[in-house]
């Protein structure tokens, strides 16, 4: 999908977009973006923008899919055809099937689905613009959408990407960095519980580098959590 570049991605300790290695892009978050959903949110990391919506808990059909002692979570991650440089043909491909699954797995440990037997919580992530780190951006949005839908949760979920470029460890990869990194790692966690619910890595790393990146990811998730928290609080606390 991605394009390779010959440009140096890190010059004098700065990234192409001027960031320092551990800096995230500008983060924007808002909730209640989609009125037909029970909960929704929109999150941007730089140009990467994800909407998330939650419908339910609602009745689940066909009936054989129902679990008598718990509700189920369904998750669809999708990229809009216009979200990338070359038009993406619409509908699920192998990449989005896999990402949908790992995102579902990132939330299953967090939700009290047993409070809603036989029902389904349907969640949707739409990437409307993709400039790297789309799945973690989607996870950050979905976490807030679930909370604002009133779905019982152990904690919020915060997620970020970290990686390595020209021997430098970096946080929040943009599209060019994503396509040209030596390695990238996606992490989602329950920030107040210190529990990791999504971990994916590709590219080559020593174990020591991996451990350093995981620690960077943890710190960054905690920062992201603070923004999620602030956004939800401001929205729901009402006027001071």
């Amino acid at each position: 999908m991605g394009k390779a570049t010959d440009k140096e991605l890190i010059v004098n300790g700065r990234r192409l977009d001027g960031r320092e290695p551990y800096h995230m892009r500008e983060i924007k978050m808002s909730v209640d973006e989609i009125s037909s959903a029970n909960g929704s949110a929109k999150v941007s990391f730089g140009k990467t923008t994800a909407y998330a919506s939650v419908h339910g808990p609602r009745s689940l059909f066909p009936k054989f899919l129902q679990e008598s002692d718990t509700g189920i979570l369904r998750c669809r991650y999708n990229m809009a055809p216009f979200s990338v440089d070359d038009r993406k043909s619409p509908g699920p491909d192998r990449r989005s099937v896999e990402i949908s699954k790992v995102i579902r797995r990132a939330f299953e440990p967090v939700l009290f689905l047993e409070d809603y037997p036989k029902s389904t919580v349907d969640s949707f992530i739409e990437i409307v613009e993709a400039d790297g780190s789309t799945r973690v951006t989607g996870i950050n949005a979905l976490s807030m959408a679930l909370a604002s839908a009133g779905i019982p949760m152990k904690d919020l979920v915060a997620a970020c990407s970290v990686g390595k470029i020209s021997d430098t460890l970096i946080v929040d990869l943009n599209g060019v960095e994503d396509n040209n990194s030596e390695s990238d790692v996606g992490v989602a966690m329950m920030p107040q519980k210190d529990i990791v619910t999504l971990l994916q890595m590709d590219g080559i790393l020593t174990k020591e580098e991996l451990v350093m990146l995981l620690n960077l990811a943890r710190e960054s998730c905690k920062k992201i959590y603070q923004i999620q928290k602030q956004t939800l609080m401001e929205k729901y606390r009402g006027a001071e």
């Binding site: 409070d115 809603y116 839908a149 009133g150 019982p152 949760m153 152990k154």
Partner: peptide, 26 residues
């Protein structure tokens, strides 16, 4: 005791609860 929800806490001598602000009917 932790909150499961986005809501308003009700903490008394006898009980801990959170009144949800959103959610479908259970």
């Amino acid at each position: 005791v932790f909150s499961k929800l986005l809501g308003i806490p009700r903490i008394s001598e006898n009980e801990l609860a959170v009144i949800p602000m959103y959610g479908t009917y259970l």
